[in-house]
Structure formats: C-alpha cells, structure tokens
C-alpha cells in the first residue's frame, strides 16, 4: 500500500459563475521515505495539489487516499484530527505564531495533541539541536532570520512525527545560499530519519536537489521523473 494515492483527481475552483480548473485528472502515488518535488510555473496547480494531499481541501472529483484512508466526505473536525496525527506543514512565509517563542511554536502541534509539557520540551530541544537552531528557543519569530524561522517551522512540522511533511515553496522567501542550506537539511532528515517530504518549487536549482520531480503544467501531470543518484 502506498502512503499517498491520488486517483484521477480534479479540482475546479468557482469564482462566481466562472469555473477555474486548477487540477485535471491527476493520478500519483507516493511511498514512505520519498523526497519529491512538485515543479511547475506559477498557477500550474502545485499549491492545489499539496492542499489536497494535506487534506486541507476536498477534490472536485477523484480520490485522495492518505495512509489508507479516503477522507473525501469527512467532517472538518475529522480532517483536523487526521492532519494533526499524520501530516506536517511548512509554508512559504514560515507562518509562525508571532506571540509565541521559537520553542513554543515548535511545540504547537504537540500541545494540540495534549502531550505533557516536559515531554514536549525534551522533544523540541532535541529537534532544535538536530536542526542547528539550539539556543534560539526563547526568541520570538520577529527576532529570527528567515532561514532560522523556516527551521523552526520544520521543527514544528516534525515535532508530532507525521507520516509526511508537505512544504509549499519552502525556500521561495530565502536567499539562494540559505535556501540551499535548508534544502540540504531537509535531505539529511529524509536520509537519516526517513522523513517523507513532498514540496513544491518553481526554482530549477531547488528542483535539481529532489530525487523525484513531478512536473505540473496547467493543472495536468506533465512529467514524473525519478532520478537515481
């Protein structure tokens, strides 16, 4: 059984009377431990695809099966619970909660899971060391650089040990050097801890780092290459 399966998935947005097809008939499978990128120009449907994989949205037609479950008709609450246990998110603009410290941000999903505080603390401390941001635990997001914030966001996504981490253009707001470092970090986590990463990018240098490149074009699957290294 694959970790994630998209079966003939289409997503059509409605703006008034206008219909905007964002994804059309996409079928894809992802296995545990993959390090895959959704590539394509802006508007090609990358974010839409990640939203569907992440159970943030329902497809207009087709099925999205994550970890053996099709949540096509699940309630908001059931979807939330499923995401909390199974999926980690990293966003382009970090989206840390500004009033919380770096450590509190990283603990957020664990807090939602009602993990006791000492356990949370210990786990996040270890993650911060792994991610090279130890010592920044008590800083507010505003006092961190973009790269540091995105590392905290990775810590937040990884803290609850999700099956997959979805990252929508995680390096788009970073300079190329920091972006490369961050990507290297993600790859290391993928290698060493077998964390499954699916991320999107329109930056060729970033795309070149992935082991599997899925090209989207106008909402359709254009290419699916696995690069053996």
């Amino acid at each position: 059984m694959s970790l994630i399966e998209l079966q003939d998935v289409s997503k059509i947005y409605r703006l008034g009377s206008q219909e905007i097809p964002a994804l059309t008939g996409v079928s894809l499978t992802f296995e545990a431990g993959e390090f895959a990128v959704l590539a394509g120009p802006s508007g090609s449907g990358k974010t839409t695809a990640l939203n569907l994989i992440g159970c943030l949205d329902h497809p207009t037609s087709g099925h999205v099966i994550v970890n053996g479950l099709d949540l096509g008709t699940a309630s908001k609450k059931a979807l939330a619970d499923f995401r909390l246990q199974n999926i980690g998110f990293i966003f382009q603009s970090y989206n840390l909660i500004p009033v919380l410290t770096a450590a509190e941000n990283a603990e957020f999903t664990l807090m939602l899971q009602k993990v006791p505080k000492p356990e949370r603390r210990a786990k996040v401390r270890k993650l911060f060391v792994d991610l090279g941001i130890d010592g920044l635990e008590n800083r507010r997001p505003a006092d961190l650089s973009g790269g540091q914030q995105q590392r905290v966001a990775i810590a937040r996504a990884m803290a609850a040990d999700p099956h997959v981490i979805l990252a929508d253009e995680p390096t788009a707001n970073l300079d190329s050097h920091t972006a490369e470092e961050l990507l290297e970090l993600m790859r290391r986590l993928n290698r060493e801890q077998a964390t499954t990463f699916i991320f999107s990018s329109h930056d060729d240098r970033v795309i070149a780092q992935a082991r599997r490149v899925i090209h989207l074009q106008d909402g359709c699957l254009a290419d699916d290459l696995t690069i053996s290294k």
């Binding site: 992440g54 943030l56 908001k76 609450k77 939330a80 619970d81 499923f82 995401r83 909390l84 246990q85 999926i87 998110f89 966003f91 989206n95 909660i97 957020f108 999903t109 939602l112 937040r156 609850a160």
Partner: peptide, 16 residues
C-alpha cells in the same frame, strides 16, 4: 485570519 488558517492546517479543531 491567516494565522487561524495555519493553526487549522496544523490540525487544530475549529472548536479549539
């Protein structure tokens, strides 16, 4: 609103 979107995405229930 944006932050609420993020919090919901991470798996917070609307009730929370």
């Amino acid at each position: 609103m944006r932050e609420f979107g993020v919090i919901l995405a991470m798996g917070s229930r609307p009730m929370t």
